[in-house]
Design a protein around this nucleic acid. Structure first.
Lengths: 141, 141
DNA sequence: TTATCTATTGCGAATAGTTGCAATAGATAA
DNA sequence: TTATCTATTGCAACTATTCGCAATAGATAA
């Protein structure tokens, strides 16, 4: 069973209807080795089939995010990127001076995740996570 | 010397030109007791003077953020909010299920900030910070 | 003061993402 | 199967934000 099939089955179990559009979007997302934007998903689908409307792609990605099957990430590039969990957890350190994105090990967030759960009962999404700030190069200047 | 004057003086010292628009935007931002959107700034300014263009407001807020005089925050409400440092540090826990925003003490991030600086030379902006996840109520369901 | 240089503004167009609504089509039960 | 209910889609309009470019106006030096 592919990852896409697993997700679709689980969505159905949760009461969502399974449409060809949703199947194709989930398929495209799970096949992506990296983060993708909604626009990229539409382009990829256009290669195989008559286009799926971009509003549907946004709605489906939002659904997948809400249901915990995808990560949503704002890299401050003016658009959101989405991904499934295939590639290992990591966080993005985004420099607000030069815009550079450093990939850091998600392990630095372990303690934070534990605290938030214990103190606030809040389960944070801590992989594929963005933190804004100033990078080493820009600090020197 | 007001906070607005301090910021404007410092901007000038860093080589930026001081325009009436920038002065008014900084003034409006520092007077705001809460987070504000670019649109709210424009409305506030319209009360006193002929309107400042919204593109200028966006550009100025971006500048203030880059220079470290303002926080920029995405609450996943479809718009960014900005604030200065007058009100104490806190973080937002945004539930991706119900959209609820919980304000948490920024102290939970102290250890993280230290780690990022030591391991990556990265100085993160950790007050007025958003973390997405699932809140206690939605976890129960 | 005045001239000069170029950063900043305003405008309108472009991009990213969302939303209301009527039409379509999954899912369920008969 | 077929009918029914309503979730989902597509479309077009709308909101938030950015960008290119010509006009304007701070800052500096003469």
């Amino acid at each position: 069973m592919t990852q896409a099939q697993t997700i679709v089955t689980e969505l159905k179990k949760r009461g969502y209807r399974i449409t060809p559009q949703r199947e194709m979007i989930v398929e495209a997302l799970t096949r992506s080795p990296r983060h993708v934007t909604a626009e990229e998903i539409v382009e990829r689908l256009r290669e195989h089939t008559s286009a799926v409307n971009i509003a549907t792609v946004y709605r489906t990605l939002e659904l997948l995010w809400q249901e915990g099957f995808a990560r949503k990430n704002d890299l401050s590039e003016g658009k959101s990127v989405y991904a499934t969990f295939q590639h290992g957890p990591h966080i993005h350190l985004v420099c607000r001076k030069c815009g550079r994105v450093i990939e850091a090990d998600a392990a630095v967030l372990d303690a934070l995740g534990k605290d938030l759960l214990e103190q606030y009962g809040f389960q944070p999404d801590l992989d594929h996570f963005s933190i804004f700030g100033v990078c080493a190069d820009c600090l020197d200047k």
